[in-house]
Design a protein around this nucleic acid. Structure first.
Length: 775
DNA sequence: GATTGCGCGATTTTT
DNA sequence: TCGCGCAATC
């Protein structure tokens, strides 16, 4: 049992206490994953059957890492066939594990076993159609709002029936001038059912329904899972809580791991109460606190601890470390958001040289995605490679969703969202009017949209439309038949080919067109890989197209490798949870931005913002910068900021002098407002701050002609001139034909002229000079 | 059915 | 400010 030797005392206790309810409070960087994986390995080493162990995480990445590390411990322990054993473990995200169970038990609930999983976009678009059908005002019943209400209800296990009876919910809706939410909820649920689809929340809600409505199913899984482990317990919502409670009721070998100080997902329905109350849920709960941090310096931990200490809602603990005291935290104030970006980029460039850091050692963490712009621009200028996390995920891209929609329809013709997406894409003459008519018929007859199309001849469509519909139906059916004899990959390829989607993208030679074409290729490859990899034995193996489609909706961009590429990482603090970096910048520490005014309605919300700050700073191993800007553009308006209250909660002794008005950071930086250079925007900022009338900025227009080429070495774009080769992030390379108005490095509007196409209006922020043309 | 031009709104987002 | 979605066009 040499794996036990590597553990400290509380860690060992957490591993060895295998019987009975256990709560592990794992502070940031205290070796949580190590404990969890060792615990699983220990159970297996003791002879516990892998089939009986259930471990639930929130991300696919966490699940994957857990599997890998368990396997590693086991093989290090001399256990043969470790790999096969590990594959038998039920390790996965809440959503993927429940989806798998729901798939096998679907018939109990009246769902097809190849039910579609709706992502947020599908849900929103379905809500939009329903709102329209109900003749409600889409401005009032916005899909986002409605979905949030429904989602919150489901996460609290309030079904549509109860919701309609729920005085408080109804009263709230009445108050918000949206009294008919309950009705939309009902229609939405029924429509999902008709479509043979579950949304993300349904995977939890229906799992709970399955367990509570069918005692034999509950019995089966209660006895199957003898050991249950839950990661990130502080982020569970009431539905997850209830399911865990049900599943663990027989053996009560429930081990939850979490850190109340890192509960930052209340807006997704998570409740910190689950972890605060765990001790009351069972008799004899053992609590183990992992308080030794192995990640950060003493200064960094101090800052984290001091801020979080202001919270009332917490489990008492003190995170400590044996690590070096480290350097003081550098607090940097800049004049504008733009300067903030420039200084951060400067510091990264300098630190790289001075301390031999790599780009991947740096992370810039912000509260809102909109803040990424100034960092992006400045890193780009200095030629520092970076990557912004948290844009569109691969599977949310249009071209991917289009192909996937065809596949979804082939597998499950009840899937109305898929059908709507592609019924007239590529254009085949079934327009809005015809679709509306078909929908109406479907609703009247209480049948699916697909059934209407199948029997279109009965419903009096115009001859041309009827013909188009029949051809469409025949095409989809031919794909279905093909699926019986051919692999999913071949069918997908045929879909792309026969619909003309592949051809269309192939012919599009613009940068984005090429990228899209490549995305399609990547999709096809992933289908091939998933469906044609030989089966492993075991009950989990299911390599069909239906199974593929279910798992891709549960994937996110964060799941796709790319971890090792040497780039500076830019992301929101939420996205940074679970990660660590030698050097971290926590930026935009301004009151109303962070803590964010929109999310703070009461004391508890402020506490969550504090936890967010805690998460942010504890990502840092050795160096930490906290920055804020005096002025910042928000929604196009220049606003003045007060420093975040969190900064007042940090003892000054831990901060490096670089405070207001003084020279920044001791690292030799000249504060922005003392520097000669000042961009137009900064000038305007300064003018407005000091009360002068702000200078009016004349928009500069640039005409750009698209001339595809590659291989230019980027140059510092101090000014734009006619004749310059420029690169646009999205539209690729082009050439400035003509300058209108002032030249400078700020251009308000750009006309990007793609060959043979219309002019496109672009924004300056995405332009970069790649080659200066002489003469 | 495709194109254009205004008006509105704008956190965080593991699945 | 910027992007989207809708209504008004051809």
């Amino acid at each position: 049992m040499d794996y036990l030797e590597e553990l400290n005392e509380p860690q060992r206790e957490a591993v060895l206490y295998t019987e009975g309810p256990l709560m592990i409070i794992a502070g940031a960087g205290s070796g949580k994953t190590k404990v969890l994986t060792t615990r699983i390995a220990h159970l297996m080493a003791k002879g516990v059957d892998a089939f009986t162990i259930l471990a639930l995480t929130f991300t696919n990445k966490a699940a994957r890492e857990m599997k890998e590390r368990v396997e590693k411990i086991l093989s290090g322990n001399g256990s043969s066939a470790a790999g096969r054993e590990v594959r038998n473990l039920y390790i996965g995200t809440f959503h993927s594990v429940f989806a798998r169970i729901l798939r096998t038990e679907a018939s109990h609930l009246g769902f097809p076993n190849n039910f579609t999983i709706y992502d947020t976009d599908d849900s929103k678009s379905l809500i939009k159609t329903i709102v329209r059908e109900q003749n409600l005002d889409e401005k009032i019943y916005k899909s986002n709002y409605v979905l949030n209400r429904i989602s919150a209800a489901k996460n609290s296990l309030v079904g549509w029936e109860e919701y309609a009876q729920d005085f408080h919910a109804r009263n709230d809706d009445q108050h918000a001038n949206r009294p008919l939410i309950y009705k939309l909820y009902e229609v939405y649920v029924k429509r999902c059912f008709r479509n043979g689809a579950m949304d993300f929340d349904d995977l939890l809600f229906n799992m709970h329904k399955l367990l509570t409505s069918f005692p034999e199913v509950l019995h089966k899984y209660q006895h199957k899972f003898k050991y249950i482990l839950i990661d990130e317990y502080q982020d569970t919502n009431p539905a997850q809580y209830a399911i865990i409670k049900l599943l663990g009721a027989v053996y009560e070998n429930i081990c939850v791991v979490g850190d109340d100080a890192q509960s930052i997902y209340s807006f997704r329905g998570a409740t910190i109460q689950n972890i605060l109350q765990f001790e009351k849920d069972y008799d004899d709960v053992r609590v183990v606190k992992l308080e030794q941090n192995y990640r950060s310096t003493k200064s960094i931990l101090k800052v984290a601890n001091e801020v979080i200490a202001n919270n009332k809602l917490q489990i008492q603990k003190v995170l400590w470390t044996d690590n070096t005291p480290g350097e003081k935290i550098i607090l940097m104030r800049t004049m504008s958001d733009n300067d903030e970006g420039r200084f951060v980029a400067d510091i990264i460039a300098e630190q790289k040289l001075r301390n031999h850091y790599h780009e991947k050692d740096f992370a810039i963490l912000y509260r809102t995605n909109a803040q990424s712009r100034s960092f992006e621009e400045n890193l780009r200028r200095k030629n520092i490679p970076y990557r912004i996390y948290g844009g569109l995920s691969f599977y949310q891209r249009k071209e991917i969703k289009d192909i996937v929609a065809y596949l979804r329809l082939i597998v499950n013709t009840r899937d109305e969202e898929a059908l709507r997406r592609i019924i007239n894409y590529p254009v085949r003459g079934i327009g809005k009017t015809s679709l509306e008519k078909a929908s109406l018929i479907a609703n009247q007859h209480q049948i699916t949209l697909w059934q209407v199309l199948e029997q279109a001849a009965m419903f009096g469509f115009r001859a041309g439309t009827l013909n188009a519909i029949e051809n469409f139906v025949i095409m989809i059916k031919s794909f279905q038949i093909m699926l019986e004899k051919h692999t999913a990959y071949e069918v997908a390829f045929r879909v792309g080919k026969e619909t003309g989607i592949i051809k269309e993208l192939f012919n599009d030679k613009s940068t984005e067109g090429v990228a899209r074409y490549e995305n399609i290729q990547e999709l096809l490859n992933s289908i091939k890989e998933f469906t044609e990899t030989p089966d492993e034995e075991g009950e989990l193996a299911d390599k069909g197209l239906g199974s593929y489609l279910q798992q891709i909706t549960l994937l996110t961009d964060a799941d796709k490798g790319d971890e090792d590429s040497d780039v500076v990482r830019l992301m929101t603090i939420h996205a940074a949870k679970g990660l660590e970096f030698p050097c971290v910048f926590v930026v935009g520490l301004e009151e109303t931005l962070f803590p964010n005014a929109m999310s703070v309605n009461d004391r508890e919300d402020l506490e969550e913002e504090r936890r967010l700050f805690y998460v942010a700073v504890t990502r840092a191993k050795t160096k930490l910068w906290l920055t804020y800007a005096n002025t910042r553009y928000r929604f196009g308006n220049l606003v003045q900021n007060d420093p975040s209250r969190f900064l007042d909660e940090i003892p000054k002794a831990y901060l490096e002098e670089s405070f207001v008005g003084r020279s920044a950071a001791g690292a030799g930086y000249q504060p922005a407002w003392e520097r000669p250079y000042m961009s137009q925007r900064d000038t305007q900022a300064k003018a407005s701050v000091s009360g002068m009338a702000s200078a009016k900025v004349t928009p500069t227009k640039v005409i750009v002609d698209h001339t595809p080429s590659a291989g230019f070495k980027p140059d510092d774009p101090s000014t734009f001139e006619a004749g310059m080769e420029v690169e646009h992030q999205k539209f690729g390379f082009g050439k400035i034909l003509k300058l209108e108005g002032n030249s400078g490095n700020r251009i308000a509007t750009v006309f990007f002229h793609k060959a043979g196409e219309k002019k496109i209006m672009l924004n300056y922020a995405r332009l970069q000079v790649v080659k200066k043309e002489i003469g």
